[in-house]
Design a protein around this nucleic acid. Structure first.
Lengths: 179, 179
DNA sequence: CGCTTGAACTTTAGGTCTTAAGTCTTCGAC
DNA sequence: GTCGAAGACTTAAGACCTAAAGTTCAAGCG
């Protein structure tokens, strides 16, 4: 979330997915190649997506981390206010990290921070007009990229993919709520 | 990669995927819900997977970051040696970060570091026996988790999913190799 | 040879995160 | 009413990262 390392310009030279699965099998025979292929693909894809999003947000003068905060605030609906703890929970950060992020974003004019006068323990983070417009720009840019990324899949395939991923997500959530 | 925040024990209270897509549409009408669902699913899934892997590796006394290094070394094949720069490239890190990781892993006995006597500018990082056995343990634990995660998908579906993800990966690579 | 260029790695400075230890406010029990 | 406990946020210390400058060695050129 320190965003895209400049270093990672073009991570070439990786083996293809199938080659990589073959390497795994050579070193660890007890492995289902189909499973490994799916997991490796997910893992690579998420890294590439982060790089892509990082470039887009950087082009708008914000970081990926900041974009995450803007997203959460917008999704909360008008008047676009949330407490730091709730933000931290949604983004999977500690409250301490959230404090620092809000510091920076306040300095940049993306959000404001004030005490809740009805309960002075609480703090209210509110999206500014500038923050909202940054979110909109980022969203436009992201949605173009996302459409582009999925262009090789027919509408029907997109539906199937969405369903399968949703099932995986349900399963991982069940696995985590136990273990 | 500082691994799983203790804080992130159970990130509950998130809206369902479809609810989240509906929220996006409310704030940004010009959005294909099918596309957004796929992208949100990928994004959530990768976060959950990282949490899961982090717990598993932590249980073995290593970090996710260290596991990545072990993986790269093992995949390089016997005698499990690589230079820091090549490792950094594969893991998407800067060489500086790699230096520090190798410091730590050397101190923990997972790898050794020595100068290449035939070209004294180069350094050779080599997996130790302990490193290899840690990798094996992590691999066993991960493969059980991965099988478990994909259990709701029939073999045929797994194949379809793997293919679709591979196509996405190809596309994102083409998109990135341009600008 | 000596100098320069370049490559591979390390060091340093600065930033964002986590954990742990405050601080401040609220609320319920004496 | 005051005291203790719990909650929400902040501060402080340490971990790991990036970017940029530094070091060391290899190789080419005059």
């Amino acid at each position: 979330m320190g965003d895209t390392p400049e270093h990672t310009a073009t991570p070439v030279g990786e083996p293809s997915l199938d080659e990589q699965v073959a390497l795994y099998q050579r070193e660890f025979q007890d492995l289902d190649p189909q499973v490994e292929k799916v997991m490796s693909a997910l893992s690579r894809l998420s890294r590439r997506m982060n790089v892509a999003y990082g470039r887009q947000t950087a082009a708008l003068g914000i970081s990926n981390a900041e974009w995450e905060v803007l997203k959460a605030l917008v999704l909360s609906g008008a008047p676009y206010r949330m407490g730091p703890s709730e933000l931290a929970k949604q983004l999977g950060l500690t409250p301490a990290a959230m404090t620092h992020r809000i510091d920076r974003m306040t300095a940049e004019g993306l959000v404001t921070r004030e005490r809740d006068e009805s309960n002075r323990v609480r703090v209210i983070v509110e999206l500014t007009e500038e923050g909202r417009s940054k979110w909109l720009e980022a969203m436009r840019s992201a949605s173009v990229f996302e459409e582009d990324l999925l262009q090789d899949l027919r509408a029907e395939e997109r539906g199937v993919l969405g369903d399968m991923l949703t099932r995986l997500l349900d399963r991982v959530e069940r696995l985590q709520s136990r273990g």
